[in-house]
Simulated assay, not measured.
Amino acid sequence: GARAGGEIAGPVGEIVGGTVGAAVGAGLEIPNAVITSIPRDEPSVVVRERVVVGEPLPSTVELRTVPRHTEYRYAIVNDRRVIVEPRTRRVVKIID
């Protein structure tokens, strides 16, 4: 976040970019109970885009509700389980 902001808008952009990047990357702590509730044996969807924390998943990827933790959504993309912010579709954690 800071590097991209600095390249685009100088020192002020670096501060804003760093703040946004930190909020997306480290600001959301996912409880272990949520992680262990996500099934491992579901089919994976293949997407061409890189799956990266902080970036949204394509609209073609179906988001599923985490069992017993309905405030969280997940998807299995390119053989990796990912937890997604449902409103923005942004990846908040890549599990494996």
Rank of each mutant, 00 (worst) to 15 (best):
G1E: 03
G1I: 05
A2I: 03
R3L: 14
R3F: 04
A4V: 12
A4W: 07
G5C: 10
G5K: 07
G5H: 11
G6D: 04
G6K: 10
G6F: 12
E7R: 14
I8W: 09
A9F: 15
A9G: 07
A9M: 14
P11I: 13
V12L: 14
G13Q: 10
G13H: 11
G13K: 04
E14L: 11
E14C: 12
E14G: 15
I15Q: 12
G17Q: 09
G18C: 01
T19K: 01
V20Q: 05
G21N: 10
G21T: 04
A22R: 11
A22I: 01
A22G: 13
A22T: 03
A23K: 12
A23R: 09
V24T: 04
V24M: 13
G25H: 09
G25V: 00
G25R: 13
G27F: 08
L28E: 04
E29V: 07
E29Y: 03
I30K: 07
P31R: 12
P31Q: 07
N32Q: 15
V34A: 07
T36E: 15
T36P: 01
T36Y: 03
S37Q: 09
I38Q: 06
I38R: 04
I38P: 08
P39I: 01
P39E: 04
P39S: 11
P39W: 05
R40M: 02
R40F: 03
D41K: 08
D41T: 12
E42T: 06
E42W: 01
P43S: 11
V45R: 05
V46R: 07
V46H: 04
V47D: 01
R48S: 12
R48M: 08
E49G: 00
E49R: 05
R50P: 12
R50V: 00
R50F: 11
V52N: 01
V52D: 02
V53C: 07
G54R: 00
G54K: 06
G54M: 03
G54E: 06
G54Y: 02
P56W: 12
P56N: 07
P58F: 10
P58Q: 01
S59R: 15
S59D: 13
T60E: 13
V61T: 06
V61M: 12
V61C: 11
V61I: 06
E62V: 11
E62F: 04
L63C: 06
R64Q: 14
P67Q: 13
P67G: 09
P67L: 13
R68F: 14
R68W: 02
H69E: 12
H69F: 15
E71Y: 04
Y72V: 02
Y72D: 01
Y72E: 02
Y72K: 05
R73H: 14
R73G: 07
R73S: 13
A75N: 00
N78S: 09
D79N: 15
R80I: 05
R80T: 12
R80W: 00
R80E: 14
R81C: 10
V82T: 12
V82W: 07
I83S: 10
I83L: 15
V84S: 06
V84F: 03
E85R: 12
R87H: 08
T88A: 13
T88N: 03
R89M: 09
R90P: 00
R90Q: 06
V91C: 06
V91W: 08
V92G: 02
V92A: 04
K93Y: 09
I94Q: 03
I94A: 00
I94F: 01
I95G: 08
I95L: 15
D96M: 04
D96N: 15
